[in-house]
Design a protein around this nucleic acid. Structure first.
Lengths: 267, 267
DNA sequence: CGAGGTGTTGAGATTTGTCAACCTACGTGG
DNA sequence: CCACGTAGGTTGACAAATCTCAACACCTCG
């Protein structure tokens, strides 16, 4: 409800940004479509792979990213073990990635929204190492990895940008390790909410009201907590006047309070 | 004590793996030295950046990796906030990397041994994002990042290899998240020991007897546990006949037993 | 030989997990 | 359009894992 009421005018970044806008879905069941895509006119270009590319590099990138793919809520974009061919950039929608061990352990490793890349984990083994699940009907740009490699040999800026994205993913993961390794439940949830709000804000949404696209169980998995603990912590935040919580609708009432929680290691 | 007694003759041995072998330290206080380094004749080449490179690519890589650096036990290779210039490949020795938040939380994000790269986290922000601390006197190859970028534009194999290394770091981090998010103390420690043993074995050391280079506290930080819990868990493993533990000397008596622990999610 | 860093162990506190009951929202099909 | 079924969410009581604090042992190094 946070992102359905935005007037269309705000969706189209100026000249022709088709992105954040819902796009016509291919026929149901169709997994890949070849609608026109253009990084150079995408309103996500300041958040996505193209960051910092020159006009001419951007146009070359357009030739690379030529297909889209739709994934319905609940469906998998890829699954651990699938052959790795492409990276994917989220255009619209929301994903989770999760790894699981043979013995059935499951861990959500991240949530991805518009402008974020999926599939980086597949390069090393040439197979995807996690499942990517759409948490709402979603659209992605398909980035064939071979071609990205080739193009980034030609364009240093693209190469550099790609390396930065991978590096930032590593830094992000280290941040999650810090969270999982050293924070208590309240601190984890506060950090999670602030992170989500900050990323939504970067995409033009409200920094204080958000709709969770994932269940308490998925949040719990990501944060290394049981769903009941997540639920209880939401309730506590509500009681403490930090949040308004109505199921998945969250209003942050006291951002500073949350930040204080995160920043207050054991005294 | 590990690197000061080797006769110079053994240092520059050409076709005669100088690697895993202790190398003469530069004068105390010297941070970078320009001794000859050759990936093409390094015995770590099957574990390090050069994996899979052709003979000719390897020789080009030699021109790139031309300097070494020594770091004494306890010293920092780099510190969070330092400008990012180079990646480092561990030749000898042992490192930990740790991130810390403003409020003083600290998290060990990894332990690196011969053949492993340090500094990947710095590419994204052009500053290092963690501290890299030598846990024993160590030697590294310095890989200037600009030059690596340039060379990998020329040699697709090198580019691909580098991407694989970054990707595998991401996969590794996701594995740590799984560990931190879903395992109990015994499972975490068992997984840690097996991982360490496996990496040591890949380097030609015993798979069953190892010397820990880090304190209980550092292990605890990495595993999201307090040092007392780590200590108790070692004792329990000892009582259960899985390990022999004498301070930092560990003998794995029952590898399968440890593996069973790791692989037995909540029943 | 002594000091300080490191490691071990015990007892009790705290946090989080477990199990169970119940509530709520939402989609489906009558 | 309503009723119902089900998935998701909340809450309570209790159990279990881990942490905290404290005492002490061990080892290394100067």
């Amino acid at each position: 409800m946070n992102d359905t009421v935005i007037p269309p005018s705000e969706l189209e970044g100026c000249p022709g940004g088709q992105p954040l806008q819902p796009l016509k879905r291919a026929a149901p069941g169709t997994r890949a479509s070849a609608l026109k895509v253009a990084c150079s006119s995408c309103s996500l270009r300041e958040l996505c792979l193209p960051v910092g590319l020159s006009r001419s590099d951007l146009e070359r990138l357009d030739t690379l990213v030529s297909t889209r793919r739709s994934v319905a809520r609940g469906d998998l974009l890829f699954r651990a073990g699938d052959a790795f061919q492409s990276l994917y950039a989220v255009r619209t929608g929301f994903f989770k990635t999760c790894v699981s061990s043979e013995d059935g352990r499951d861990q959500v490793t991240g949530f991805q929204m518009a402008g974020e890349l999926l599939g980086l984990d597949g390069i090393g083994s040439e197979r995807h190492n996690c499942n990517a699940v759409a948490l709402e009907d979603s659209q992605l740009c398909v980035i064939p990895y071979d071609q990205l490699e080739a193009l980034s040999r030609e364009f240093g800026e693209l190469q550099r940008q790609f390396h930065k994205i991978m590096s930032r993913e590593i830094v992000r993961d280290h941040g999650v390790m810090l969270l999982l390794g050293s924070m208590r439940a309240e601190e984890r949830l506060a950090a999670f909410l602030l992170n989500l709000a900050q990323r939504l804000q970067a995409r033009g949404f409200s920094a204080s009201s958000l709709v969770l696209r994932m269940t308490r169980e998925e949040i719990g998995s990501y944060l290394g907590l049981k769903l009941e603990t997540v639920s209880r912590t939401f309730s506590k935040f509500h009681d403490d006047g930090l949040l308004e919580v109505k199921q998945r609708d969250i209003h942050i009432l006291d951002q500073e309070g949350l930040q204080r929680l995160v920043n207050s290691a054991r005294c």
